[in-house]
Each structure stands twice: as C-alpha cells, then as structure tokens.
Design a protein around this nucleic acid. Structure first.
Lengths: 189, 189
DNA sequence: GTCTATATATAGATAGAC
DNA sequence: GTCTATCTATATATAGAC
C-alpha cells in the first residue's frame, strides 16, 4: 500500500490522476484499463507506467483527489464551535461535493475495489470514520446510525439518479439540505 | 440484448446465476470472470459456456433474479387501493429486499455496467420507472423527486454501510421504515 | 452436461532506445 | 518523459471428444 500522494504533483502525474478518476467513475476501477487511461491522454501505456509503478498507485492517487476535499471537511468540522455546527458543516460539504461532481465522487461508494480500500487503507478509513462521527455527534443509538448511513450513502448516490438529472445544482443542493434536515429532526422531534 | 430468462430454469443454469449474482455483488461485473464463476461451482469454463453463450447473458440473467422480486412489488403496488397504499407497499418491499440481502441487491445500483443496462434494457428500465412512479404517486415537484432519489438509492446503499453492520435485520427494517416515513412526511407537513 | 485443448484479445507490467 | 517492443497472465469464447 502506497502513501497518499503529496501535492502539488507534477503535471503529467496530475493529468493521469484526473483522467483516471473520470474513467473510474464511468466504468469502475476493474472496468478501466491503463490502456484506456493512456488513450484518453494521448500517450502510451509505458508513459503512464513511468509515472506510476502500478495501477494500484493510480487508484489510490485518484481517490485521494476526492479525499483531500473530505479531509478539508473533517478539519472544518473539528474547528466548529458546537457538535451541531460540526454536523452542519459536514452535511453541507458532503452535499456540495456530491452535487458539484454528480456521481464522479460517488463512484467511491459504489466500486467494490474502493469499498475494500476503505476497510484496509487507514487514511481513507479514518476520514470516513471522522465524517460519520461528526454526523452522529456522540449519538450511538441504532436509529441514529441508520440515519447516518442513509444520509451518507444517500447523498452520494441520489445526485446521479436519472429522476433528478434535470434539476439545477442550486435547486438540488437546496432540496437535499432540507431533506437531510428532516431526517435529523425526525430522530428526536 | 437477450430477453429476460424464463423461470423455472434448469438446475445448472440456476446454479450459475445464483453464484454469479453473489460474485458480481462482491467484485462487480467487470471484476468477476467466468473462471471465477466456474471455480466457485466446481466445473470448467466450458461447462458454463454450454449454459450461456456470453457473459452478457449471465449478467442479465442474474440481474433478473432480483428484478423478478421488484416486478412482483410493482404488481402488488398496481393492485393497491390508493396511491398512498401503493407507496407503502413499494417502500416496505424495497426495505425488505435490501435488508434481507444486505448489499447483494444493492450492487445493482452501484455497478457501472448495471447502470448502463438499466438505461438500455427496456424491461429493467420499465420496472425501475414504475417503482419511482409509485413512490411519487403523481407528485412531480423537484423536492419530491429528490426525496424519491434519496429514498430509492439510500435504502439500497445504507444497509451495507459498516456503521449499521451490527444491527439486526428486524431492527434495521424498523428504523429504515420510520426514517423514510419522516422524509415523506417532511415533504408537505 | 462436462471435459481437454485451444484460439484470440487484452490485461498489467517491464526493458531499453531516444 | 515518451516511445517501440515484448513478457506473462488471464480474459472471453469455441471446437470437439466422452
């Protein structure tokens, strides 16, 4: 397992990670070959292998493009004055991230290879655990944990559902915030 | 594109579809080879190819194992006395199906290859559209459609989140029903 | 219905020239 | 940093014997 890549990357490295993230989200990790990545960029496979020793490194590196943003969210949550404020930061950031990429980010939750990385790869696992912690705010009741699971997975997946494809980013954000608030309010209200 | 398989299947055919569905849900369609399917059953690849001409047929056939159940839900929804009753039938069936398989069913929503089938393959598309219709009950407002997307995708994905893995099927069903009801009530209340 | 054997293509990955 | 060429493994798929 390689470490999270440092930033800023070299230009060719960054280009590979960008293209890989896009292709992974469209075809899945297993459905994306290094040849596809190389073809999209317009170079040969060997040029890609010069930048990354294995496909694994590309998977982790491109995933890190998303997790950098999630890590920033965790840090913003950590400095929030109250547990409730931290939860709002996390919810709003997750919604913004999901809506702005409309499924590009949510492939993370869907891909079987990624799901395995999240369990085995500590930096990823820690960030996801922190997000869940902020969402729960110390509330470990079963109903609250089910609600957290519904919110975390639902936000990422719902934005790419065809039934909402005609809704503007702004409106989608607004509706998701209200719906998530309803779920949270329903826990105790 | 092949047609949905007839039932009952021959025993070897059924066995292949069962095993394939399980492997697809664990590794994704692209991450599952016919060799893996053959090895799990204990036969050779050629024996598998004797039952199905292509991997595509196996993908569609195994997916149909789930969609048979969704089709039954659609039929139960169609005979419900009111729109509200139909919505409850659909919600409860989706929750039951998701909980009883804990992610085996939800791979359908996650796999990029499956997402493409849903758009291109009419029987699948029709069933999914019907489920969404019953959930919406004629309400086409943006906020309602976002809620429907959140519910449909959230149910399938949340049950496989590690944060709920220790919760019993019975409790998970109960909490999901209440949470979904909260979302629906929040639309107009 | 299952087997061995094979055809063909492509996967991940490397060597070495420029 | 990119190329051509190649290695090895494995993918989907088929032919034909039992």
């Amino acid at each position: 397992m390689s470490q999270p890549p440092q930033i800023p990357q070299s230009a060719p490295k960054s280009r590979i990670l960008e293209v890989a993230l896009q292709l992974f989200s469209e075809h899945g990790v297993a459905g994306t070959s290094l040849q596809m990545i190389a073809d999209t960029i317009g170079v040969t496979k060997a040029a890609v292998y010069h930048q990354f020793k294995t496909k694994d490194e590309i998977v982790i590196g491109s995933t890190w493009l998303i997790f950098e943003k999630l890590l920033a969210t965790v840090e913003r949550g950590s400095t929030a004055p109250t547990a409730k404020a931290a939860r709002e930061v996390v919810v709003n950031d997750l919604i913004d991230l999901a809506v702005e990429s409309r499924g590009l980010a949510s492939f993370l939750q869907r891909d079987p290879i990624m799901l395995r990385y999240f369990e085995e790869h500590e930096p990823f696992r820690n960030i996801l655990a922190s997000l869940a912690q902020f969402l729960l705010g110390g509330d470990t009741r079963q109903k609250s944990r089910v609600a957290a699971a519904l919110i975390i997975t639902g936000i990422g997946s719902s934005v790419m559902h065809p039934i909402v494809s005609d809704i503007s980013d702004q409106a989608l954000r607004k509706h998701l915030r209200l719906l998530v608030q309803n779920v949270i309010d329903g826990l105790d209200g």
